[in-house]
């Protein structure tokens, strides 16, 4: 029995040593929580925002930069636009793309269609790509996200962006019909959601393309403001050109949101 306790004590001592080292001897890295699938609000996006979204996916959810980086795991994509033209003519090309956009799309979902020399799976003689299909499996980009990535790649490689922003209902890849969103609660949220601050100076945002709205209530009535949102071209403020502001807010905003926004602006004095 004595040995039972002696050996048990010794074992405990060793285990607590290892435990202590793992807990206090090394820095503890807090694991990131599992990624949440993001909902896209494509309707209100400009092409620049859409490209930026593509960049975000490229660097984040798409995990592209794990390999497409300077360490040479995968080809760099900084000239993909120019390269695509040549590759589609290459004898080794197995895909069906006709345009740069199609080529990039194909290389995202069927990476083996063209494998850049030297980057194939080992032993496959550059016929098979080690890259996963980014529309499935662990990365799981939907068509809208793919389009954003393509737009980003076209933009960043200096070629013309030919992608069109997909319609809203392309975003949720599957599942039930999109849930009717509840109306926003504060005017600040409305301003953020509809991106007013991109062009206007209002509510802590400092856009400079459109008129400054920080004291708009002083000179403008509620009716004027309402009209300016619903039909931006009706009256163009002095010193600004027409055709800049999207005419679609009337379809997008809820009546409650619109009134809240108008009341808020009327109060800015």
């Amino acid at each position: 029995m004595k040995n039972f306790f002696k050996t048990a004590f010794f074992s405990l001592l060793v285990i607590s040593g290892f435990w202590g080292f793992s807990n206090f001897g090394i820095p503890q890295i807090k694991p990131a929580p599992p990624p949440v699938e993001e909902k896209l609000d494509l309707g209100a996006m400009t092409m620049d925002q859409f490209i930026a979204l593509g960049g975000k996916i490229f660097n984040g959810k798409g995990t592209c930069t794990l390999c497409h980086n300077a360490m040479g795991r995968a080809p760099m994509l900084d000239k993909v636009g120019a390269n695509a033209e040549e590759r589609m003519k290459d004898a080794r090309y197995k895909g069906e793309a006709k345009t740069v956009q199609e080529y990039i799309h194909e290389s995202l979902v069927k990476p083996s269609a063209y494998v850049v020399a030297g980057f194939g799976k080992s032993g496959s003689n550059d016929t098979e790509s080690p890259m996963p299909d980014v529309s499935g499996g662990g990365i799981g980009l939907n068509e809208a996200e793919l389009a954003a990535v393509i737009a980003y790649l076209q933009d960043s490689s200096g070629s013309e962006v030919t992608v069109e922003i997909p319609q809203m209902d392309a975003a949720p890849a599957e599942g039930a019909a999109p849930v009717e969103e509840a109306a926003l609660k504060t005017p600040e949220e409305v301003i953020v959601k509809y991106g007013c601050g991109m062009c206007h100076k209002v509510a802590d945002q400092v856009g400079a393309l459109g008129p400054d709205l920080t004291k708009v209530g002083k000179s403008k009535s509620k009716d004027y403001l309402r009209q300016a949102i619903l039909d931006p071209e009706a009256v163009i403020a002095q010193g600004f050109t027409g055709g800049m502001m999207p005419p679609t807010f009337g379809e997008q905003m809820k009546a409650k949101e619109l009134e809240m926004l108008v009341n808020y602006m009327a109060g800015l004095k």
């Binding site: 820095p27 890295i29 980086n69 300077a70 360490m71 760099m76 900084d78 960043s156």
Partner: peptide
């Protein structure tokens, strides 16, 4: 904790 090699961006 610092990352010793901050990889520069390509662009």
């Amino acid at each position: 904790l610092r990352t010793i090699h901050p990889a520069p961006p390509n662009k």
